[in-house]
């Protein structure tokens, strides 16, 4: 009789416990998105709690995008990956089989909830008179950029410079290679990620120009003041399209797929897009983007498609023995 009573009580109490679920997600992202996802996470958790009653805790992991992809391949159990470039996420699909090869088709805009681009951050007054990419290869100019082998942002930097050189040299690959070789010759330090390069330039006072994510450049000025730095917009840059995905196998293993999908979908909501714009990224929703339009300069942008897509760009430029390895020698 007693045992029956205990079982009945447990059965009655079970739904109460079922409503009090606590869910944890790990978002493995690239270097400069700390502030963005801190805000996104708080807002999403608040909404999820209100709608479903569950407590969602989203842990963040940040680093150079290439390094982060490697970490996931090596076993870092990311429920979602929000890396700097689709090529890094492709490598997760290819090498670890944790996500399907066509992962990018699952969310709008090739799974890119926002875009960004590469600009120059220089010291106040622009003492080296840096206006465009060709100024970066001049003797005596010190350029700060992360390492393209480990950083997604650095690969965007490299490709933007390469595109500029192609455009101004009759599409000569040889001259473009010579150009980026000269640029990296002027780079005294290669950090592993974009945030590290910002630290090198902004906090350690090294270099004349930082090749920066647009959002990172805005953030530096926001944090340190317009009296310290200014943004220089080059004549040509590249459309950076960081893409996001649920890491299927891990999310299924953790039983977090539903929350993980909702989390990424939240990035596309008006509220998510608003947070994205506020954090200096370019929202993919045109209506929200319009609200922030005045903040962003008009730019002549190439895209990764101009390089034949990430698979080809990775193979030609950044794979072991690729062009970057050939032109960059310490």
């Amino acid at each position: 009789m007693k045992l029956k009573a205990i079982i009945a009580a447990a059965a009655l109490a079970a739904p109460l416990f079922a409503h009090a679920a606590s869910i944890e997600l790990l978002n493995v992202s690239y270097d400069p998105t700390r502030e963005l996802y801190k805000e996104i996470n708080a807002k999403f958790a608040e909404q999820w709690k209100a709608k479903n009653g569950d407590t969602v805790t989203i842990k963040q992991s940040h680093g150079g995008s290439g390094k982060q992809a490697r970490a996931i391949i090596d076993g870092l159990e990311a429920d979602v990956a929000t890396l700097a470039l689709a090529g890094d996420t492709d490598s997760v699909a290819k090498n670890a089989k944790l996500i399907p090869a066509d992962w990018q088709k699952r969310l709008p805009n090739n799974s890119s909830p926002y875009t960004s681009t590469i600009v120059f951050l220089v010291r106040k007054g622009n003492p080296k008179k840096i206006k465009d990419w060709n100024d970066l290869v001049k003797p005596g100019v010190s350029v700060i950029t992360p390492n393209p082998k480990t950083s997604g942002g650095a690969r965007w930097n490299y490709l933007a410079a390469y595109a500029y050189a192609l455009k101004n040299n009759g599409n000569s690959d040889a001259k473009a290679q010579e150009f980026v070789k000269g640029l990296f010759k002027n780079a005294p330090v290669l950090d592993t990620g974009a945030r590290g390069s910002t630290t090198t330039f902004v906090q350690r006072g090294i270099g004349d120009v930082l090749l920066a994510w647009e959002n990172e450049a805005f953030l530096s000025i926001e944090e340190f003041g317009t009296d310290k730095f200014e943004i220089v917009v080059p004549s040509l840059s590249i459309l950076a399209e960081p893409a996001v995905t649920v890491v299927d196998k891990i999310a299924d293993k953790h039983g977090t797929r539903k929350v993980a999908e909702a989390y990424l979908n939240f990035l596309y909501t008006d509220e998510g897009q608003q947070i994205i714009g506020k954090n200096h990224y370019r929202p993919s929703n045109p209506a929200v983007a319009a609200k922030f339009a005045s903040k962003y300069p008009k730019l002549n942008l190439v895209t990764i498609a101009d390089f034949g897509g990430w698979a080809k760009a990775q193979q030609v430029h950044f794979a072991d023995g690729g062009i970057f390895d050939q032109i960059y020698q310490k």
């Binding site: 010190s142 005294p188 330090v189 950090d191 592993t192 590290g196 090198t200 350690r204 006072g205 090294i206 270099g207």
Partner: peptide
């Protein structure tokens, strides 16, 4: 000053690495 800072940063990065 720049050279010293570069060397210091490189040492810092080497230590992290």
């Amino acid at each position: 000053d720049q050279r010293i800072k570069v060397l210091e940063r490189q040492l810092e990065l080497q230590a992290e690495d």
